[in-house]
């Protein structure tokens, strides 16, 4: 059976570290980084990229529109 796999790209310099994407992600793909971007925010990053299913919930709730989402069947 084909599996749905996804991948996200996060523009970390525009991320404000609000964490909403992290709590929205149904698979635990996203975590907050242990380091800050140039604005001083702990930015979001795909800590567990293999868990991503490309549902785009993170991108849809991201206030700053910093997440781009890709999805494919393998």
């Amino acid at each position: 059976m084909a599996k749905i796999r996804g991948s996200i790209v996060i523009d970390i310099e525009r991320c404000k570290g609000c964490e909403i994407c992290m709590v929205t992600c149904p698979t635990g793909t996203i975590k907050m980084a242990g380091q800050v971007n140039h604005k001083g925010y702990f930015y979001a990053w795909p800590a567990n990229p293999e868990l991503c299913i490309g549902c785009a919930n993170c991108a849809v709730v991201c206030p700053d529109g910093v997440i781009t989402v890709y999805k494919t069947k393998i």
Partner: peptide
């Protein structure tokens, strides 16, 4: 643009 990405193989237009 500074980015972090998930699995690169899937990132195709």
């Amino acid at each position: 643009m500074a980015e972090v990405t998930g699995i690169k193989d899937y990132i195709r237009p």
